[in-house]
């Protein structure tokens, strides 16, 4: 006598047969299926950073891919690896995913060598986003240090494209030196928008630099902030957002109205691999966007 046990074939599950949509968190899906995307354009920003435009090949997949500013994707170069990259583009620009990538490791290194037309894989979007809905009707501070402008560019798009929803907008941006300034070709455009002020500062000037010199917090001297009517988004290295948020907190901006984006190692983006754990918090699921009060409560976050 034999008892052949039941063969469970997960491919017969109704949910998994649906098209993969990473915005449906609870639905059973092929968690490691990537959307094949073409590098449709490459813009060199600095020696270390390039802006990649990606276009998902499959039309239906492209149509389903929607994200909110602050979210990230897992970008896979098959054979090389997978890295988390925050989306730098506008959510309204359907079908185009803009990623600003610094050459830092194997995957990003080979991406910098890749040519237009190369095919990569994308999973996502993942993570939390900046609460642009809640920020409506307030003064907005958009503050970036260094590579922080990459994730900040998405909310800059969202705010400028929906200009009437927000009051005064101040964009503050600081880098080590002028050679590291990202997206310099867009500054003029941002400056010309009514009620949007762009302030740029570098820590060390070169011969040609005529703008401000110093740490980013120095820019606060130029800006009038009404603390209880302001929301802030701060993107940059921990030392930078720590000082910026401390200043804002001191002048009375509530900590739960300041938002930062944290960076950690990630291997899955889905709260499974634990690599991005900060205490009991998953940067990939509970973040990467956190309000500053939450960050203060995360041990080892800063």
């Amino acid at each position: 006598m034999k008892i052949p046990l039941y063969h469970y074939d997960i491919m017969k599950e109704r949910e998994i047969q649906q098209p993969v949509d990473f915005n449906r968190h609870r639905r059973l899906k092929h968690t490691d299926k990537t959307f094949k995307a073409e590098i449709s354009s490459i813009t060199t920003l600095t020696d270390m950073e390039k802006l990649f435009h990606l276009r998902i090949l499959d039309e239906a997949e492209r149509e389903r891919f929607t994200f909110l500013p602050g979210q990230f994707v897992m970008l896979e170069v098959p054979g090389y690896g997978e890295v988390p990259i925050s989306i730098s583009g506008s959510p309204s620009n359907k079908g185009l995913i803009e990623l600003c990538i610094r050459k830092a490791g194997t995957v990003t290194g080979v991406l910098h060598k890749a040519k237009r037309g190369a095919l990569v894989g994308i999973r996502g979007p993942f993570g939390t986003h900046f609460p642009l809905e809640k920020m409506k009707g307030y003064d907005i501070l958009l503050i970036a240090g260094g590579l922080g402008l990459a994730p900040l560019r998405a909310p800059i798009f969202a705010v400028t494209e929906n200009r009437p929803d927000y009051r005064k907008v101040d964009i503050m941006y600081g880098t080590k030196d002028p050679s590291q300034l990202l997206f310099d070709y867009q500054y003029e455009q941002w400056r010309r928008i009514d009620g949007v002020n762009l302030h740029i500062i570098v820590e060390k000037a070169d011969d040609k630099w005529t703008g401000d010199v110093g740490l980013i917090t120095k820019l606060f001297d130029k800006i009038e902030i009404v603390p209880h009517e302001t929301y802030a988004i701060v993107c940059g290295p921990p030392v930078m957002f720590k000082f910026v948020c401390a200043y804002l907190s001191k002048i009375g901006v509530p900590m739960d109205r300041m938002f930062v984006s944290l960076e950690r190692r990630m291997h899955c983006g889905m709260g499974k691999c634990c690599r991005c754990n900060i205490g009991s918090t998953y940067t990939c699921i509970d973040g990467p966007v956190f309000d500053y009060w939450t960050v203060m409560n995360l041990k080892e976050a800063i």
Binding site: Y8, I10, H25, R26, K29, T31, M270
Partner: peptide, 19 residues
């Protein structure tokens, strides 16, 4: 709880578990 019931259920785990 982590791999079958939470966000992003793992098909790899569920397939082994149910078998």
């Amino acid at each position: 709880k982590v791999l079958a019931r939470d966000n992003f259920p793992s098909p790899y785990y569920i397939a082994r578990r149910k078998n």
